[in-house]
């Protein structure tokens, strides 16, 4: 589904991704871990199409297409979803209108007519129930005045609405209390199918108890320096990144 080859990217002339290689197949869950500032969010942003990051090398193939040739809205319609580490507040745009526009555009892309108002509200209600989003939020402006946890839940709600092929969840667990964490993980698991894939970026083993990854990668200094199974997360929890960093610093 996703094949990243030797991806390099910079911002303001500063190289941040220094050659990423990663392959994600349908049905898989990958976790990306790594110290602060290692480039995890940058990788997510580059995949979503944020233009402040300049891709200076490498290839990204998504469902057989050259992803890097698509603008962000096309990537979304093709099936990429990024749950933001810091969801953006949009004063004056209600969640309902926001999602209406998004769902419309996704349907148009697939050749479907827009839903009528009542169909849409029914659809929204169904998805809200799935991720246990508070009903009071829908009339409010997107993320405006939301608590940290509400913002993260709202990301998962949007994911449920758009049913992506590849979801990238950037620290969706940070700032969540244990109940909210379970709700969010539960939502993600319910949305999981054999056809879609998930990349979870996290600092904590705790999330991985609920969203169980097939493969774990460690990103450090703009490179994936280690890849392993579930046991890698437990190892990191115990020993931290010191060993991996030292080893990587020697290699590069």
């Amino acid at each position: 589904m996703l094949k990243i080859t030797d991806l390099k990217a910079e911002v303001d002339g500063k190289e941040i991704l220094r050659g990423i290689n990663l392959e994600v197949k349908p049905g898989e869950v990958h976790a990306i871990m790594g110290p602060n500032g290692s480039g995890k969010s940058t990788l997510a942003s580059v995949l979503a199409g944020r233009d402040i990051f300049k891709v200076t090398g490498g290839k990204v193939e998504f469902k057989g297409k050259n992803l890097l040739n698509l603008i962000p809205e096309e990537r979304s319609r093709e099936g990429i979803f990024l749950a933001f580490q810091y969801p953006v507040e949009i004063p004056g745009v209600s969640i309902t209108n926001f999602m209406r526009a998004a769902v419309d555009e996704h349907r148009k892309h697939k050749g479907f007519d827009p839903m009528n108002a009542s169909q849409f509200l029914r659809y929204m209600k169904e998805k809200k129930a799935l991720v246990e989003l508070d009903a009071k939020l829908e009339g409010r402006a997107v993320n405006e005045g939301f608590s940290g946890g509400e913002k993260k839940k709202n990301e998962i709600f949007q994911m449920a609405m758009l049913e992506p092929d590849l979801a990238i969840l950037d620290e969706t667990d940070s700032g969540l209390d244990i109940d909210a964490l379970k709700v969010v993980a539960n939502g993600v698991n319910k949305l999981k199918t054999k056809e879609n894939a998930t990349i979870v970026i996290t600092h904590y083993q705790r999330l991985l108890d609920y969203i169980v990854p097939d493969i774990i990668h460690v990103l450090y200094n703009g490179r994936i320096v280690k890849t392993g199974g579930r046991e890698l997360a437990l190892e990191l929890e115990k020993y931290g990144y010191d060993e991996i960093k030292k080893e990587a610093d020697k290699r590069f």
Binding site: A48, P72, E89, I90
Partner: peptide, 27 residues
């Protein structure tokens, strides 16, 4: 217009023009 908001909207599939219109109306 807020570029962060524009990007956020685009990542949900909303094209630039529509996103801008929505942000201006909201303003």
């Amino acid at each position: 217009l807020d570029n962060e908001a524009l990007f956020y909207m685009k990542t949900r599939g909303i094209p630039e023009k529509r996103a801008k219109t929505m942000l201006m109306k909201a303003f």
